[in-house]
Simulated assay, not measured.
Amino acid sequence: MSIKSTEQEIASFCFKEIPSSNKTQLADNNDKLSKFKSDIRRLPAMITNNGLLATMTFYKKNNDKVYNIINKWFSNKSGRDIDLIKYLTNLTYEELLFKTSEALKLADWLKRIVEVKIKDDKTTQEE
């Protein structure tokens, strides 16, 4: 049995959750993929500026794919299916700070991996 750090667990989870694709090959999904990548890129800043609860509420309404990834992470960590918004509202202040720190690590890894796995049109034209 190997022991993984939290960073390794998060990186592995994110790598599995972000689909590999080349946007030029998926013309019909190009707008959706572009929006998804954009939303992932700004996720860490949104958590930092607005807080985890407000950010997750925003994403639940505007990009449920991003919300579902974060929800899945916290569901897996708690060992049960949760509604992330309800879960976060029931935490103490200290617990919410800890979960926010964990979500920022997750958001940073999502951002890194989305840059690698979802290629921009500009990048693929240069290759």
Score class of each variant (00 low, 15 high):
Met1Ile: 12
Ser2Gln: 13
Ser2Tyr: 13
Ser2Thr: 14
Lys4Ser: 15
Ser5Asp: 06
Ser5Cys: 08
Ser5Gly: 07
Ser5Ala: 10
Thr6His: 14
Thr6Pro: 11
Glu7Leu: 12
Ala11Phe: 14
Ser12Pro: 13
Ser12Gly: 15
Phe13Glu: 06
Phe15His: 11
Pro19Thr: 09
Pro19Ser: 11
Ser20Cys: 10
Ser20Ile: 12
Ser21Lys: 03
Lys23Pro: 00
Thr24Pro: 09
Leu26Gln: 10
Leu26His: 04
Leu26Tyr: 08
Ala27Asp: 05
Asp28Glu: 14
Asp28Leu: 15
Asn29Lys: 09
Asn29Ser: 11
Asn29Gln: 12
Asn29Gly: 07
Asn29Asp: 13
Asp31Trp: 14
Lys32Gln: 13
Leu33Arg: 02
Leu33Ala: 05
Leu33Pro: 02
Phe36Ala: 02
Phe36His: 12
Phe36Gln: 06
Ser38His: 15
Arg41Asn: 14
Arg42Tyr: 07
Leu43Pro: 02
Leu43Asp: 00
Pro44Tyr: 04
Ala45Pro: 05
Ala45Glu: 09
Met46Glu: 10
Met46Lys: 13
Ile47Met: 06
Ile47Glu: 03
Thr48Ser: 13
Asn49Gly: 03
Asn49Gln: 06
Asn50Arg: 12
Leu52Ser: 10
Ala54Gln: 13
Thr55Gly: 08
Met56Leu: 02
Thr57Gln: 06
Thr57Trp: 02
Thr57Met: 07
Tyr59Ala: 08
Tyr59Gln: 01
Lys60His: 08
Lys60Met: 04
Lys61Gln: 02
Lys61Glu: 01
Asp64Val: 15
Asp64Tyr: 15
Asp64Leu: 15
Lys65Thr: 14
Val66Ile: 02
Val66Arg: 02
Tyr67Ala: 03
Tyr67His: 09
Tyr67Gln: 03
Ile69Asp: 03
Ile70Asn: 03
Ile70Tyr: 04
Asn71His: 10
Asn71Lys: 11
Asn71Ser: 13
Lys72Leu: 09
Lys72Thr: 11
Phe74Tyr: 03
Ser75His: 09
Asn76Arg: 13
Gly79Ser: 12
Arg80Ala: 09
Arg80Gly: 04
Arg80Pro: 02
Arg80Trp: 04
Asp81Glu: 14
Ile82Gly: 04
Ile82Thr: 00
Ile82Trp: 08
Ile82Arg: 02
Asp83Leu: 10
Leu84Tyr: 07
Ile85Phe: 01
Ile85Lys: 01
Lys86Ser: 09
Tyr87Trp: 03
Leu88Cys: 06
Leu88Val: 01
Thr92Asn: 01
Thr92Leu: 09
Tyr93Asp: 14
Tyr93Ala: 15
Glu94Ala: 11
Glu95Asp: 03
Leu96Phe: 01
Leu96Ile: 00
Phe98His: 15
Thr100Pro: 11
Ser101Pro: 08
Ser101Phe: 11
Glu102Met: 07
Leu104Arg: 05
Leu104Thr: 09
Lys105Pro: 14
Leu106Ala: 03
Asp108Met: 09
Leu110Tyr: 02
Leu110Asn: 09
Leu110Phe: 03
Arg112Cys: 09
Ile113Tyr: 04
Ile113His: 05
Glu115Met: 06
Val116Cys: 05
Lys117Phe: 00
Lys117Thr: 00
Ile118Phe: 04
Lys119Phe: 11
Lys119Met: 12
Lys119Arg: 12
Asp120Phe: 11
Lys122Gly: 07
Thr124Ser: 12
Gln125Asn: 07
Gln125Pro: 00
Glu127Asp: 12
Glu127Gln: 12
Glu127Ala: 10
